[in-house]
Nucleic acid binder design. Structure first.
Lengths: 343, 343
DNA sequence: CTGAAAGCGCTTACAG
DNA sequence: CTGAAAGCGCTTACAG
């Protein structure tokens, strides 16, 4: 019986009840109801009780649009989702997004997504110019990133999932340099002799960082870099193919790929050429998507917690919006999954 | 010079200018400016001109929150993003989302995402109860879908990317039944003898539809169904493994998987067992992710245009919101990519 | 064709 | 501790 009533009032409340209705039912003013809900201003304990009960009873939800207008806030955060073709197959970003959605809801924000391309941030501009968000999360960065320049100019709070030399930017990232360095060092310690690197577009900062880790590892282990073993800017599968064919002409014992899409292509070519992994050549990758795990042999890969990146980014951004002044970088852990492909 | 001025006013305008400012500059009333912008109500052509120029000059963007409050709209559409673990690796949903974002922006809407799980739609409820969206897009459906029941009850406009028997629901989908039927029929026509099916969770309508297509194909070709060759509810990789091992004991010439994640696992087990594709056994899948394309051999797969599903869903939803009464189902094309894995 | 005014549903000084 | 009133930035009947 009770339940039925609640159900009914819940239905009615959808798009109907206002703060005035509940003020009337209680015989108090709208101001009082508002204060009870927000907890701001002096207000009697007992009054708060009564208001809260009434709200509960009717399943009343204040209209956040109106609230937003009144205090010049939207209670929305924006997420800039990469729409470039190189990223369309990487679930990394959607997992980040899940993390952001989760914290946002917990902190009473909603998340609005917009797409950005390397050279086209019109939709991002539209979003901030229409004042639909209180801040934005960038999910990757380029050398000379136009989204960053734009956001900086507008003064809107934003955070970056990624790393930048510009430390005025609030950053959340895994230590990609270190992760790659450690992976390569482990291989070297395992007496793996020639290690080639196939990296994606160098305009993506993340690829640069992984290359840097590769260089560092060689240097720290007293191995001289062979430039012929580093293939960067392999953004299309044609380039990957060229790289692999070049590598196969040399004395290489392992191919490290900066992401799983590249790695998938590499595995395919190796099979085509009749090379077995790890027998003839070892392979390792970054991101550790399900396909790397279920591949035969399973592929050694560095895994990141994309959801956590999203959660933290959301939390930090909302912090900024609400006045937090901490602008330090958050560095998250990575995991090296050593699997059969490098044994 | 001109450009610099525009840049400057653009900066200033971020979060500052209102309709009143531009009314003042022009010596007209706010009402007039509003009418010029919206194009509603009678208004002089020349006045519109002047208003538009002034708006252009200052790069003024009306505050959509205020507009929303005034006409009880948010100009936001919601997208319910699956957060269940089975889907986390499928880029399908993120590509849909890109499509939605694109139309939405074109029609002057923004898209807010929320996550839903099979048994937990609290975040969806929160979103609609807070009145942050004018409608929502569901991106998949279950048998007995609680999200659908909920939305239906609230009366908010919504569309489904997926298929349902309930034709009061506006649906946008590929014809999964037909796609699977055709794929199986092609195999049969090619004289492939035993065709096994490994399908995901039967609570997902899409998996049911693909199974249905499989049944239809057998029936239409006068082949009696062998229940032992159909493995449904293979939601975890343990089940997939069991299924494959069972299949290998039988006389099976082809394994059809209802999605690429299952297929990845199947390929791995086959390799482990020393079976070659397509020599010893053929394999086909659904979704056609990049890993299917770059696999060696490339995998025969049915591909869908996820972006287009998103675009159309967005367009239809906004139509509904704005009064469109067309509730017919939109059926999109699929592509069968016949590749080496079934040759 | 245009303007003054009321309203959308909240918040928050300002009085009391 | 509480209320009346003004304000957030728009829209839209209602007059003219």
């Amino acid at each position: 019986m009770k339940q039925m009533n609640e159900e009914n009032s819940s239905i009615l409340s959808t798009g109907k009840l206002t703060i005035a209705d509940i003020a009337e039912e209680l015989g108090v003013s709208k101001s009082t109801v508002s204060r009870a809900i927000s907890g701001k201003g002096r207000i009697g304990k007992e009054t708060v009780q009564r208001v809260m009960e009434c709200i509960e009873k009717h399943n009343f939800k204040p209209n956040s649009i109106a609230k937003g207008l009144a205090d010049s806030r939207t209670y929305n955060i924006g997420v800039a989702f990469p729409a470039d073709t190189d990223f369309i197959n990487t679930p990394f970003f959607q997992i980040c997004l899940l993390g952001v959605c989760e914290v946002a809801a917990a902190l009473d924000y909603d998340v609005v997504v917009t797409t950005v391309k390397e050279t086209d941030i019109n939709l991002l501009k539209r979003l901030v110019e229409h004042r639909k968000v209180d801040g934005v999360i960038l999910t990757r960065n380029f050398t000379n990133d136009i989204a960053i320049s734009y956001l900086k100019k507008t003064g809107i709070p934003y955070v970056l999932i990624g790393s930048s030399d510009d430390d005025t930017i609030v950053q959340i990232d895994n230590n990609n340099v270190e992760a790659c360095e450690k992976l390569i060092s482990l291989l070297i310690a395992d007496d793996v002799k020639g290690i080639a690197l196939i990296a994606g577009d160098r305009k993506h900062m993340v690829n640069r960082h992984r290359c840097e880790g590769y260089y560092n590892a060689l240097k720290n282990n007293g191995i001289t870099l062979e430039p012929d073993l580093v293939f960067s800017d392999c953004s299309s599968s044609v380039f990957v193919e060229q790289a692999v064919r070049n590598i196969l002409k040399r004395k290489v014992e392992c191919i490290v790929c900066t992401d799983d899409v590249i790695c998938g292509k590499v595995l395919s070519i190796l099979r085509e050429e009749g090379y077995t992994v790890p027998g003839d050549i070892k392979v390792a990758s970054f991101y550790d998507s399900i396909y790397m795990q279920t591949n035969n042999p399973p592929i050694t890969a560095i895994g990141f917690n994309a959801e956590e990146l999203g959660t933290i980014a959301g939390k930090r951004l909302i912090g900024l919006i609400e006045g937090d002044t901490n602008r330090s970088k958050t560095v998250l852990d990575y995991e090296i999954h050593l699997r059969r492909s490098t044994k």
